[in-house]
Simulated scan of single mutants.
Amino acid sequence: MAKVTKKQAHRNALGSTPWGNLSALRFVLETNAAGAALDASSDAPLAIGDVVVLGQIPAGFRVVDSAVIVSEGMTATITGDLGFAYNDGVDSATVPQDAVYFGAGLNLATAAHLRKATSKGSVLLPKDADLTLKVNVAANAKASKIEVIVYAIAEGVATAQ
C-alpha cells in the first residue's frame, strides 16, 4: 500500500496571531410591528422581492459558511434567499455574484438555527461585497429578529483561487 502525502498549502497557516485568521461577521435584521426594517433607508414594510443589504463582507475574505438565527420569525410563509453582490455593481469573472450562495428559500417565518444550505465551495472575494437577503412569498407585517453570521477566513485579495 502506497503512502500519499498531499502538498500543504501555505494558506493553511494561522497567520500572525495565535488565535488565527477566521472571522465571524455578524449582521442583524430587526423589523418593527409593521414589518419594516429598523435602522434602514426605508420605513416601508418589507415586500415580496425586496432585497435587504445586511452589511458588507470585505475583499480578501474567503467565505466558507454561514448561520442564520431566526429568533423571532417574520410573517408566516416568508422565505429568503441569502447571498452576496458586489457593492460596486460590477460582477467578477473569477468569483461571480451569487444571490443564493448561502441558501435559497430559507424559512424566515419560524424560529430556527439554519446553516449554509448549499454545497457550494468556499470563495475568495476579490472586492467588497454586500450580504443580501431577498424576501420571498409574502410581505412582512410583524416584528422579527434575524441574525446572520458569516464565517470567513482573512486571506487578502489574491489573483488566483
Rank of each mutant, 00 (worst) to 15 (best):
I153C: 02
I149M: 06
Q161K: 08
E155K: 10
T17H: 13
K116Y: 10
R115M: 03
Y86P: 00
H113A: 13
H10N: 13
V150T: 03
G105D: 05
N140R: 06
V95T: 13
T75E: 07
A138I: 08
L38G: 03
I48G: 04
P45H: 06
V123P: 00
R11L: 13
M74T: 05
L82D: 08
P18E: 14
S92I: 05
V150L: 07
D88M: 03
D128L: 01
A111D: 12
G156W: 08
Q161G: 08
A44D: 11
N107G: 07
K116H: 07
I153N: 05
D88C: 04
N87E: 11
G60N: 08
P96C: 03
G60V: 08
R62A: 15
R26M: 10
R11P: 00
G105K: 01
T31I: 10
T132D: 05
I48T: 14
D39M: 08
S92F: 02
I48S: 09
D65H: 06
S66F: 05
V63G: 12
A111S: 15
K134S: 08
N32G: 14
G73M: 06
I69A: 14
N87M: 12
A154D: 15
T94N: 03
A34E: 15
G105W: 03
V100T: 15
N140P: 04
V135L: 15
P45V: 13
A34S: 14
A109N: 12
M74C: 06
T75P: 01
G73Y: 09
A112Y: 00
D91R: 04
A40L: 07
T31F: 12
S16W: 05
A93T: 15
D128G: 05
E30W: 04
R115P: 06
T118H: 07
G89Q: 09
A99W: 02
D43S: 15
D81G: 02
A143P: 01
S41Y: 03
W19G: 10
N136K: 09
Q97K: 08
A40W: 06
G83R: 04
Q97F: 00
S23W: 09
D43V: 13
Y86D: 06
K134H: 02
D88K: 01
I146Q: 05
A99D: 05
E30I: 03
A9R: 13
S23T: 04
V51M: 09
D128Y: 02
S16I: 07
T75I: 03
A36R: 08
T110Y: 00
I69G: 06
F102E: 00
A104N: 10
A76G: 11
S71R: 12
T5D: 11
R26W: 02
V63C: 11
D81K: 05
L124Y: 03
E72G: 02
G55R: 00
S144A: 15
A9H: 08
N12A: 12
D50R: 10
Q161F: 15
L38W: 03
V52W: 07
Q97P: 01
Y86T: 07
A2H: 10
L131N: 04
G80C: 09
G55D: 06
V100E: 11
K3H: 08
G103H: 01
V70C: 09
G80A: 15
V157R: 10
N21I: 13
G73F: 10
A117L: 01
R115G: 14
K6P: 01
P126D: 12
A154V: 03
V64C: 06
L133P: 01
N136C: 07
A143R: 15
S144T: 10
